[in-house]
Design a protein around this nucleic acid. Sequence first.
DNA 1: TGTAGATAGTTAGTCTAGCAAACAATATTT
DNA 2: AAATATTGTTTGCTAGACTAACTATCTACA
Lengths: 161, 161
Amino acid sequence: MTRPKEILIPVTPYAEGDPDIGDIKNIVGFHIRLAHGAVYRNFTETFSDLELTQKQASVLWLVDDHPDIAQIGLARRMQMDRATTMAIINRLQKRGFLVRGKSKTDGRKQTLNLTNDGRQALASAKVAMQKHEKWLQSRFSKKEAEMLIEMLSRFNTEKPV
Amino acid sequence: MTRPKEILIPVTPYAEGDPDIGDIKNIVGFHIRLAHGAVYRNFTETFSDLELTQKQASVLWLVDDHPDIAQIGLARRMQMDRATTMAIINRLQKRGFLVRGKSKTDGRKQTLNLTNDGRQALASAKVAMQKHEKWLQSRFSKKEAEMLIEMLSRFNTEKPV
DNA sequence: TGTAGATAGTTAGTCTAGCAAACAATATTT
DNA sequence: AAATATTGTTTGCTAGACTAACTATCTACA
């Protein structure tokens, strides 16, 4: 492991002055991206043994929480389009973690359910997730974590009223 | 534009109880990913005329802020590896937005600088960024936005002390 | 009822991005 | 002087996001 001599923290907490964007340090989007990258890297490291990505683990989790869910339901919950969802489901199916079935109520839809292997993978994933979340949440008090989640969820609303 | 009949907001603000991860709704990583996705999509929409990605716009901005910066400097600031940085620089160079030069102080390094086209693209990007940030920050008070940035930046520290 | 439009899944193709591994050239350290 | 580190580069692989087209099915309404 080589440590860079100069550790550049590309951010300052915030800047004084008016909110216009003279400085990249004040761009919320920039910070979301950096944070996402850091979280992604830690996730990948934590899950390297399991060989599951964030998306894949989330899909396993959601399918387990919602048996017989259709791809479109997954897509909505994870805010992905159908094509992307297909690709992810295909990968998980190829590894034998879930199976597609026929919906009894809607001929267009299929049902998704975990296999035993899938359930086992999810169980391992939840253990790893605990470690990952610990890494994340160690940076925040419980109250702060709640606040962070609440603030992040505001991005997923259609439009602020 | 077809609107889904059922709009699924995949989150609840937070859940009561202890912080262990029985529920995907309490996973910070999950929310970061969703938020990042939403921000990314709005960015892409806002920047569709300019045909610039988040990364590309950020690189233009940083090169403008730091003339003669080397690729490795950019990589550190944006937390990318060298290979990824290469690819992004190559794309921007191919479009004539920046040029590579020779560093006078270190034979291994190259200098990056914007061309006139690059400066022009950045100027347009900053205008679009203003719109994008407005979309983002409309969800937050000024104080909340500052808090959010501060909290997000905690992910980019090595380890919490 | 019958038809037009919406929805769900699928496939193919394109693009960005991340990363590992290797290599050459240059700097730094010992 | 030799060993090690750093920087840029190339190649190859992977995941993921998106568009466009197509089929099958369902829904709505004239």
